[in-house]
């Protein structure tokens, strides 16, 4: 299937084993994500906004979870906390069994670098770098040597169907193409957890379909994927859907599709 599908991510089940081989976290004994009673309060001057008000949830390895909710309900806030890009005001977060709040700045950098691939709604590519130079960035910080980096970055771009645009800068690419580059960047360091915050929000329907197919691919190859979406049809294809309203999870995670790896 890897050979036939031009936008296949080409990840096979052996890479699932690699995660176990690291010995950092046992994939099946602890959930990938385990948060409890998480609150997030934004303070802007005298104004306080409670973006998350006691969120608890667990996501097991290999799940494909859709996160839905109206604008301003706290989806992004939750996603940033899950991605270790922000810290909760209170509550605990265990990532694959490890308490994130006790991690040092350097351990957090490593978690962001190797364990989590984050896809932003705004792509967040560096305008001065070509596509492949953007994709190789996580590998630069992982200390991978130059030739291996280039090889892996080109391979990742190839898998998202951007193999013929590797020298283009973000400004020379369409939104859909930029998001595919961003997706290649998210998977290049082979993370077990993919977090995508409205990745199709700025895309036309064709591009959106391509990106969603790629996420599906990732899920099928064993990745844990959390996706924020407004599209109920998309949510249908995931193994579980979480609804968030005004900083709280509406439907406590049902057992309907828990552990729904392919």
């Amino acid at each position: 299937m890897t050979e036939e599908d031009p936008i296949s991510l080409g990840l096979d089940d052996t890479q699932q084993v690699r995660i176990d081989d690291t010995g950092t976290y046992p994939a099946f004994s602890a959930p990938v994500i385990d948060i409890e009673d998480v609150h997030k309060i934004y303070r802007t001057g005298s104004l306080e906004v409670a973006a998350l008000r006691g969120v608890s949830l667990t996501i097991a390895a290999g799940e494909y979870v859709a996160l839905m909710g109206p604008s301003g309900s706290g989806k992004s806030t939750l996603m940033h906390i899950l991605g270790c890009l922000d810290v909760p005001t209170s509550g605990s977060y265990r990532l694959a069994g490890e308490d994130v709040s006790t991690m040092t700045e350097y351990e957090l950098a490593e978690v962001r670098n190797r364990r989590i691939g984050f896809v932003f709604q705004q792509f967040n590519l560096l305008a001065s770098l070509s596509a492949w130079r953007n994709v190789e960035l996580p590998l630069v910080y992982a200390g991978v040597d130059r030739s291996t980096r280039k090889q892996r970055a080109l391979a990742a771009l190839d898998r998202v169907g951007m193999g013929d645009r590797v020298e283009h800068r973000p400004g020379e690419l369409s939104g859909g193409q930029q998001q595919r580059v961003a997706l290649a960047r998210a998977v290049v360091s082979d993370p077990a957890l993919i977090l995508a915050d409205e990745p199709t929000g700025n895309l036309d329907s064709v591009s959106a379909r391509e990106v969603l197919d790629l996420l599906d691919e990732l899920h099928h190859s064993g990745r844990t994927v959390v996706l924020i979406t407004h599209d109920a049809d998309v949510a249908e294809t995931t193994s579980r859907t979480l609804r968030i309203w005004d900083g709280q999870i509406l439907e406590p995670s049902s057992a309907s599709a828990t552990g729904g790896a392919a």
Partner: peptide, 13 residues
């Protein structure tokens, strides 16, 4: 913003 992105991708301070 660039600093934030690089940090998000695993750059240490």
């Amino acid at each position: 913003r660039e600093i934030g992105l690089r940090k998000a991708l695993g750059a240490t301070p």
